[in-house]
Design a protein around this nucleic acid. Sequence first.
RNA 1: GCCGGGGUGGCGGAACUGGUCAGACGCGCCCGACUUAAAAUCGGGUGGCCUCCGGGCCGUGCGGGUUCGAGCCCCGCCCCCGGCACCA
Length: 814
Amino acid sequence: MDDDRYDSKTIEAKWQRVWEDAGAFHVPNPADPAAATRKTYVLEMLPYPSGELHMGHVLNYTLGDVVSHVRRRHGYAVLRPMGYDAFGLPAENAAIREGSNPRISTERNIEAIRRQIKRMGWSIDWAREVSTHEPEYYRWTQWLFLKLYDAGLAYRKEAPVKWCPNDQTVLANEQVIDGRCERCGAEVESRNLEQWMFRITDYADRLLDEMALLESWPERVLTMQRNWIGRSEGAEVTFHIGELDVDVPVFTTRPDTLFGATFFVLAPEHSLVEQLAERSPHADEIRAYARRAAARKGEERAAAVEKTGVFTGFYVTNPVNDAEIPIWVADYVLMEYGTGAIMAVPAHDERDFAFAEQFGLPIVHVVAPEDGEVEEGAAYVAHSENEVLVNSEQFSGMPAPDGKRAIVGWLGERGRGRPAVNYRLRDWLLSRQRYWGCPIPVVHCPACGIVPVPEEDLPVLLPEVEDYMPKGRSPLATATEWLHVPCPSCGGAAERETDTMDTFVDSSWYFLRYTDPLNDREPFDRGMVDYWLPVNQYIGGIEHAILHLMYARFFTKALNDLDLIGFREPFARLFNQGMIYRFGAKMSKSKGNVVSPDELVDEHGADAVRLYILFMGPADQDKEWQETGVEGTSRFIHRLWRVTHDELEREPTGVTTGTPLARKAHATIAKVTDDIERRFVFNTPVSAVMELVNDVSRTPDDPASRFAVETAVSLIQPYAPHVAEELWQRLGHERLWETAWPVADESQLERDTFELVVQVNGKVRDRLVVETGLPEDELVALALASPRVQAHLDGFEVRKTIVVPQKLVNFVVG
RNA sequence: GCCGGGGUGGCGGAACUGGUCAGACGCGCCCGACUUAAAAUCGGGUGGCCUCCGGGCCGUGCGGGUUCGAGCCCCGCCCCCGGCACCA
């Protein structure tokens, strides 16, 4: 190799081999987890092997790599594993597209991704590699499922569920975006099916409250999860239908407006609708309306400009005043939320008001602004602060919050209501009618019902089938030999469950498996998970703000309840990187705007690509890909190379303090360290090192040039580890990856002199170089002595003088 | 409608606790050096307007305010991105 030319290919291959041979990034588990060590767990979301890596992955894993390198060089044992989220729709659909078997295409993709990862030079502990589709892994996914089943947290239930007609499977609510399948974009349908669910709703409150245990999560993610859980406090109030002698509960957040309920509405899907229709003279009309409404999609119903509905001819009794109010059926009431029935208070609810207007129903005001006066001819009154109850018998005059409590209390005493909390969150539907997933380890026995597969029979292997195309029933059903088994309980003929698990089940515990990936007796060792977890820094895309991140939190809490782990939140700190756009759109194959990391690495080397992806801008913001951007960081590497080689021509002086270049180097150490560790920003450190290198090339005769060059090489190592290691070696050192992170000399951050800014009325009029530490009056005297300042003071009276030590003097004149 | 994030040169962005004429660093562009030439590389310039070349005025989405001083704080708007939404 020509020593004077930078060649990324040779250098990167060389150092990747060195690291591998040295086991540089392998971190063994401690023999005694109780012994205090400096350790940290840095984790990035694992990739789906449905294709190759894209620039989003490059950003994700380079971010994690910088954090890992810096922490390692601070003396931490860094757990930094990698794995593959191999099961699931994306991988299976990719296999179908290319007419290949999912296992074969997934494993081929894994190999390609592994090769890409190694080419990028990310510092990973390969001894901990896992893939969710391997029996050694999914055996424990099944084991955990059975633990949740035993605890009553996994159950089977028939319910209206979301069905994707294209992917031929049910979906979790979280996988439906604007009424469409998150994966393929097809419009989802509603079906009544018996499916496997996880009781995540039991954890709704803890998913909210235990956000307090998190060290640092982006506000937007917490907000999204709060919105998704959708907790609202109110009351359940029981209304009575005399004719049927049935009680109908409703949920309301406004029990204070109960006296204003002038009608009552059932969702078209409500079971009482048919019961009422049977006895009603308008039976046909009611049934026709219910059928019409059911046929409309939720979005259509929501978008309707005019409210629709039909009167049933029956009445219900308002429990607070025994008023008989008419029962209507209307599709603005949703069966999925609350109880599917509402009390309508048109004076204080916009939707009820619109309905009342449309059908000429009475409007009664029962809350008013604090003076208690209801405006003449008032219609709908928006909720406001300091309302008081009116027209509410003994409750009139109470401030609304008191009224709420009093009315709910009054109802409670009479058995007609109670405080209640309602959630938007639904249980997690986990079964899928697809081939490429973890088999659900239960057997259906005609005599015993659902029987869990005994632990010792795990894993239930995913059978080989000839045709794995989705057909609405799981392809596993065609594996007849696999399907028919004796019941583990009674020994009679039985059938295996043929649905597979949602891929999000696999990824809800993978971060635990990394701590003990080869364990064949249990999913993980309790001592090791408790030692490494919670993850100190988790990094991944915002697209998982709800899905994966909420499921993983749920799993962690459930496993904690089962006393399998000793912590309640999986990820202490979370960082979401922004999306990378090109030509104004998110990079995607279908839009044809992807930039291939491989091609960029071929052309510029992994170091230049790593530098650019972080230098582009704040890592958490979305940003536009710049075609010529990598050239800039590539040039920087060449410049660093040249500056280092120029330096090698000079005799080292040993000077590390006192010169302008020495001070710049110390300031750069301080800036880079603070940015990465405290501020968690990754673009400005690159700028700072560029400045340092620019300074070296401008002032090569500064005695501290060797120190400045070594500092630049050392600081850039987390970003560009290959070239840094090579230059470090040429500078006569070794193993930069385990060399202590540099520490700035505080005394070098202060200057003997500084530039004093002199302002007149807030405008800068002069800048003077003055000694550090002069008393204020001397600074003022020096400032007054400036002819430029005098020119602006001339003829005016100085009314006030502001002195900011180390910074400026401002004269206020007038 | 509710909640969260954001608006700075031709572009990506910087300014970290209100304090050095806002614009670091990089991209692009312009000029120069090297070259027969080009590329690469190196050096210089690059917010706008005016200029007697000293400098002056304007400028961080819009309008106000607080302050000696505001990109940063407060009030009222506009626009963009994301989440939730006939959720009772």
